[in-house]
Design a protein around this nucleic acid. Structure first.
Lengths: 214, 214
DNA sequence: CCACCTAACTGAGCTGAGTTCAGTTTGATT
DNA sequence: AATCAAACTGAACTCAGCTCAGTTAGGTGG
C-alpha cells in the first residue's frame, strides 16, 4: 500500500504514524469515521490499542490529520497542474483533471475529507486537535483562493465572463468534490470518464454565456 | 418554531416526536451529530433522557428520521415546483429555485442530511434504523430520478444537448446541495443571491454548448 | 560489555455517552 | 371510580475511547 500521501517530514524511521494513517484511511473509508472502532485500526497495524496514543492524541486527531494531509495534497496538485498552463481555460481544465488524478487510497482520503468536512466548523477541546483543525481551515481557504484566483485571471483576460469569483470557486469545488459522495473505485464508471464529464461541466459553467431562453 | 417539516401522520396529539426532531435538528445543525449529546436533546424538549427511547430506538434512528423527512420534503418540493413548467428549461430553473426556498430550520435539516449522507452507505444493525436507511436510499434514488427525467425530457425536446442524464443529474445535485456546506443563515450572502447564481450555473451546465477553445 | 536514554509499547483500569429495564405517572375512555 | 395505553422516570449496565504507571526495544557513549 502506498503511504506517500500520508507521510510527513518529522516521522522517524521506526515510526508507525504513516501505517496508522493508512489503516485509518481504510477503516474510515470503508465504514465511516464514527462506525470504525479505534481498536480495529490498532489491530490492522498490529499494535495494542493504547500504542495509538503515542502517535495521536485521539481518534479525532487522527481523522483531522488525514484531512489536513488530503488538503495539503490537493493544494499541491492544483499548483503543479496549473503552473504551466498557457491560458486560464487550459488551467481550469488542468485543475479539474488534477483533482481526479488520484490513487484509490487518495480517493478514499478525499471521500473521508468530504464526509467529515463539517468537523472543521466547531472548535476542538484539545490543543493538538485544534491545531490540526486550524491548519485544515487555512488549507480549505487556500484551495478556494487558488480556484478564485484562476477565475479572476480568466475574467481579467476576457476569457471568462465576469461573475463573483468566490462563489464561482465554491460552486466549482462543490461540483468537483461532490463526485466523492457517489463514486466508488471499481464501480460502473471509470474515473477518467467522470473527469472528462465534470471538466466539460466546469468549462460551460465558467466560460459559457447565458444560452437563449426557451 | 415550525414543526411542519418534521411531522408525520402517525403522531398522536400528546406525542413529543416532532418536538424531539426539532430539538435534534437544532443540536445536530449547531455542533454536528457526533458532538451533540443525546441528553442535551432531552433537556431542550424538557424530558428525561430515557423518554427519548419511547420515540426513537437510538440517536442514529433519530438522525435517520430527520434525513428521511428532509429527503421527503425535497422530493415533494421538486414535484410541486416543476409540475406547471411549460419548458424543460423553465422546469430546471424552478427546480433549482425550489431547492433554496427553505426556512432556516429546513436549511439546517438539509445541512444535516448533507453532512451525514455517508451514513446511508453501510447496513445498520437494528431493524428500525435499517428501515429508515432503506427509505432514505430509495428517496435519494427518487430525487436523482426526478432530475434525470427532467433532463431526459429536455434532451428529447432538443432543449438540452444530449449528455448522460444520470451523471448530469448527480452533478447538478452536487452543485445544488454543495451550497449547504458553506452557507449559513444570517451570513454575508442572501439565499436569494445564491439561488440566482446557482440557477445560472445549472442552466449553463445543462443547456450550454461547449464554448470555443482558447 | 555495560550503563544509559528515548521512542515505542503494554495491561489494567477509568470515564462517560448511549442504552436497557423494571416500574410509575398521566390522561383519556367507559 | 376502574381501566388501559401512552408517556415517562431513576438506577444501573455497556462498551468504545481514553489515561496511567510501568515495561520493552533499539540505538549511543563510555
Amino acid at each position: 500500500m502506498s503511504i506517500e500521501a500520508l507521510t510527513e517530514a518529522d516521522d522517524g524511521p521506526r515510526s508507525k504514524r504513516p501505517a496508522i494513517l493508512a489503516a485509518a484511511v481504510e477503516c474510515f473509508g470503508e465504514v465511516g469515521y464514527e462506525a470504525t472502532k479505534w481498536s480495529e485500526v490498532a489491530d490492522r497495524v498490529g499494535i495494542g490499542q493504547t500504542a495509538l496514543y503515542h502517535y495521536f492524541e485521539s481518534k479525532a486527531h487522527c481523522l483531522l490529520t488525514i484531512m489536513r494531509l488530503g488538503l495539503r495534497n490537493s493544494d499541491a496538485a492544483f499548483r503543479e497542474a496549473t503552473a504551466g498552463a498557457s491560458s486560464s481555460s487550459d488551467a481550469l481544465r488542468a485543475a479539474v483533471e488534477a483533482a481526479y488524478a488520484l490513487s484509490p487510497q487518495e480517493v478514499q482520503q478525499n471521500r473521508i475529507l468530504q464526509s467529515n468536512i463539517a468537523l472543521l466548523a466547531n472548535e476542538r477541546a484539545s490543543r493538538r486537535e485544534e491545531t490540526e483543525r486550524q491548519a485544515c481551515r487555512e488549507l480549505v481557504a487556500q484551495v478556494e483562493h487558488n480556484w478564485a484566483e484562476l477565475l479572476e485571471r480568466g475574467m481579467a483576460a476576457g476569457e471568462f465572463p465576469r461573475r463573483d469569483p468566490q462563489m464561482m470557486a465554491r460552486s466549482l469545488l462543490g461540483l468537483v468534490v461532490g463526485v466523492w459522495r457517489w463514486y466508488r473505485p471499481g464501480g460502473p464508471l471509470e474515473l477518467r470518464t467522470i473527469s472528462d464529464f465534470i471538466t466539460g461541466c466546469c468549462v460551460r459553467m465558467v466560460a459559457g454565456r447565458e444560452p437563449d431562453a426557451g
